[in-house]
Design a protein around this nucleic acid. Structure first.
Length: 771
DNA sequence: CTCTTCCAGCTTTTT
DNA sequence: GCTGGAAGAG
């Protein structure tokens, strides 16, 4: 078990010295996750009980990845018991456990951003304020910032500086909105995302014994991406680690790019003064990129003032110079980029999935998508609206939410007239008013027949009662049956199933698929619970769901496609070839940032993050005019291009290839990738563009297996590229197999063009019998 | 109550 | 140029 040998000296020190506070400054590509996982493995090796380790990350993806890496180092039984997860998921777990102390039930709902904004919108209306002046987005942002800085509604009202600031901005009633918002959340037995952290702080402040319990429990605390923590998170970590002081934080101040959502770079900059006895480890060797890329990135970040002194270096080859692609328009940019991708594939044998296009804003993907599509280059767009934010998914989830917590008024309002049952805005408004006046929930009003008869006409009363009965039945079902049965019953009883099935428009079909995918997820949950012997009910399923946003986000390495995403989304990823597009003033750096030096520094760090994604080749492009918000703007090259030391640049080497040329390259790409399949273009995360594009049946290049000539295959024998038969989905081709043991999953593309992820333990797959 | 049209807004984003 | 909320018409 001498995994330590796999580390360099700096990494080893950071892994082996497990006691006391430690700050690991991990430069880009320096093996940050490695150190974190090995350090945890080291603790386990030193016989630290896994449940005494708390490891906090920002995304589900990061924690999943870390857990699986620890599993492979030290075994999955051990890793399963580590308290590892996102800040929000870990503390929601603790909050559910301690909920009564704060006056919540353990089934409390978690409001997502949209719920929060809807609630704020309705409060603004109730207060008869103008929503052009009191913009819900602005108010939400203000409340969120307050919460992240531990300013409760009461404190908000009492803080003179805040009140005078709001008054100066002519928004003096924000404090009232905040106050009512908070009361209403409580009334609904709901917390928003920020509450999960704020209430944890309140719990620890008001219940010292509880704090003590967790302080003692978590002997070792590790925090990933520490530069991204906000004040609320910072304080939780600080409090929890106060007893044992075994706090290890890992991060890179140069990659702090989330201040707009409250992240405080000072947290990492000031770690040493918070913990004077701490050890600092600097991981400065970059294993990812060529010397040229590393040096160029250094030359950029050198322009920032506030940072921890470090020198990132690489022992890799010198590598190609960075190519600058100058274009007249955004269209030409897209065209040139796609042509460069052709040449790359032809000249360097780069695989498409080793190519990424990064941009500052999501809106920039459109032009790129068009050009790639025209040139038949398969691509996937990451980001945009996620699976869980789709309307149909939110609708069915709202039913689940109400079944578990009928006090959740936001969810009730969402479904009370979906599918249409003749309960309109007026009735809902009346219900809400009645609830507010009586200090109760809409659910309570629905259950008060006297009030209903008194305030509504008989037709409406009938509809309301029938809705109440529907909800009551879902509550009953969800308490008696397991998660999957409940979900299915809800889908049918609510009328969602019928509504969706009746709709044969392309959007309707897509909705149906998504609902099905949701139900599949519940089924997978139930199957898993059955196997593990864990609790199988809807409420347990929902605990995880509110905090899931990127389930679909598994990076499909095996699918040979160019990926496109914002730079923010690319953090933590790496690619051989990186295109950073739209390097223009007012776009990157963004127009919002040019007036402030602090903001420019953050944009510069963002550029640094973008550059350091590249392993081998970097391409930077800009256009002199760009279509934005419906009009063409003249643009200037970004200052960031000029900040790169000229010796690393290859300027204007780009020449537009001729058309015939590109045609040939198209074929070359296809020929060199026999597994090429357009099918994979179906949303990875989804993008309207990819979705609206129907999959051609000719794209699934395998013949249908004859049902009479197939034999079952065991999970162990499933391999990529196999042609298999599934009793309900028909013939398909295995794309990827991952996971181990009972968790082994296969991503399969079926004849109908859909990709499904199957848990092999359950999926009955067959292969063709060979004669 | 529901459907349609109108209009504002628009960086980045995880939970 | 697209989305999603709000107001207006049937």
């Amino acid at each position: 078990m001498d995994f330590i040998d796999e580390l360099n000296e700096a990494q080893q020190k950071a892994v082996v010295n497990t006691e006391g506070p430690a700050l690991v400054i991990a430069g880009a590509g320096s093996g940050k996750t490695r150190v974190l996982t090995y350090r945890i493995a080291q603790l386990l090796k030193q016989s630290v009980a896994p449940y005494k380790i708390l490891a906090l990350t920002f995304t589900n993806k990061a924690s999943r990845e870390m857990r699986s890496r620890i599993s492979s180092l030290i075994g999955s039984e051990m890793s399963a018991n580590i308290w590892m997860g996102t800040f929000h998921s870990i503390f929601s777990k603790i909050l559910r456990f301690e909920a009564e102390k704060l006056g919540y039930s353990s089934n409390f709902t978690i409001f997502d951003t949209q719920d929060s904004k809807n609630l704020i919108r309705s409060i603004i209306k109730e207060l008869k304020l103008d929503n052009k002046v009191y913009k819900p987005n602005v108010i939400f942002g203000r409340i969120s910032m307050a919460k992240n800085n531990l300013i409760t509604a009461e404190k908000y009202m009492q803080t003179g500086s805040i009140i005078s600031e709001d008054t100066a901005r002519r928004l003096p009633r924000i404090c009232d909105i905040y106050n009512i918002y908070q009361k209403r959340c409580k009334q609904n037995d709901a917390m928003d995302f920020d509450d999960l952290l704020l209430k944890t702080n309140i719990l620890f402040k008001d219940f010292p014994d509880t704090l003590k319990k967790y302080q003692e429990k978590f002997k070792y605390i590790l925090v990933d991406e520490y530069q991204d923590t906000n004040y609320s998170q910072y304080l939780i970590v600080k409090k929890l680690s106060a007893t044992h002081r075994n706090i290890c934080v890992v991060g890179d101040d140069a990659q702090s790019i989330y201040s707009f959502r409250g992240a405080r770079i000072e947290n990492i900059l000031n770690f040493k003064s918070d913990y004077p006895e701490s050890n600092i480890y600097k991981l400065e060797r970059n294993y990812r990129s060529t010397k040229t890329i590393v040096k160029a990135a250094n030359s950029i970040i050198g322009n920032n003032k506030d940072q921890i002194q470090k020198e990132i270096w690489s022992e890799n080859e010198e590598g190609d110079k960075i190519k600058i692609i100058k274009c007249l328009s955004d269209k030409e940019e897209a065209y040139k980029v796609s042509n460069t991708i052709f040449s790359l594939v032809r000249n360097t044998q780069s695989k498409l999935n080793e190519i990424t296009i990064l941009y500052r804003t999501n809106a920039q993907s459109r032009a790129m998508e068009e050009a790639l599509r025209k040139n038949d280059i398969p691509y996937a767009v990451y980001g945009g609206t996620s699976f869980y934010q789709r309307k149909e998914i939110k609708d069915i989830l709202a039913y689940f939410r109400v079944a578990i917590n009928p006090n959740d008024g936001e969810a009730i309002k969402r479904i009370i007239n979906y599918p249409k049952r003749g309960i309109g805005e007026t009735s809902v408004g009346k219900l809400q008013d009645l609830a507010n006046i009586n200090g109760v929930n809409i659910w309570d009003i629905l259950n008060n027949e006297q009030k209903l008869v008194e305030f509504f006409n008989s037709g409406t009363v009938k509809k309301l009662i029938s809705f109440r009965e529907l909800i009551q039945s879902t509550i009953d079902i969800s308490q008696k049956r397991n998660a999957y049965d409940s979900a299915n019953a809800i889908s049918i009883n609510s009328g969602i199933h019928q509504e969706i099935t009746a709709d044969s428009t392309p959007e309707g079909v897509s909705k149906k698929e998504n609902i099905q995918e949701m139900l599949n997820a519940v089924q997978a949950f139930s199957q898993n619970a059955y196997r593990e012997g864990s609790k199988d009910d809807l409420s347990t399923f929902m605990e995880g769901v509110a905090l899931l946003t990127d389930q679909d986000n598994e990076k499909s390495d095996a699918l040979d496609k160019v990926t496109m995403m914002t730079i923010h989304a690319a953090k933590g990823l790496e690619f051989d070839n990186v295109f950073i597009v739209g390097l223009e003033e007012d776009l990157f750096p963004s127009a919002m940032s040019v007036s402030s030096n602090v903001a420019i520094e953050e944009e510069r760090r963002l550029f640094y993050v973008a550059l350091t994604r590249a392993k081998k080749r970097l391409f930077l492009s800009f256009a002199l005019s760009r279509y934005r918000n419906g009009q063409i703007l003249n643009t200037r090259p970004s200052r960031f291009i000029k900040e790169i030391d000229k010796s690393y640049l290859d300027i204007n080497i780009f020449e537009t290839p001729r058309r015939e040329n590109s045609y040939n390259t198209t074929r070359a790409i296809h020929n060199s990738n026999p597994s090429y399949s357009r099918v994979g273009e179906r949303r990875i995360k989804n993008s309207h563009t990819t979705i609206s594009k129907p999959t051609k049946s000719t794209d699934t290049k395998f013949s249908i297996l004859n049902k009479d000539n197939i034999i079952p295959i065991s999970a162990d024998d499933v391999r990529p590229d196999m042609i298999v038969y599934h009793t309900s989905f028909g013939t398909g081709k295995i794309l990827v197999v991952d996971g181990i043991g009972s968790q082994k999953k296969a991503r399969v593309v079926f004849k109908d063009g859909k990709i499904r992820i199957l848990l092999l333990k359950f999926a009955k797959l067959f292969i063709e019998r060979t004669k």
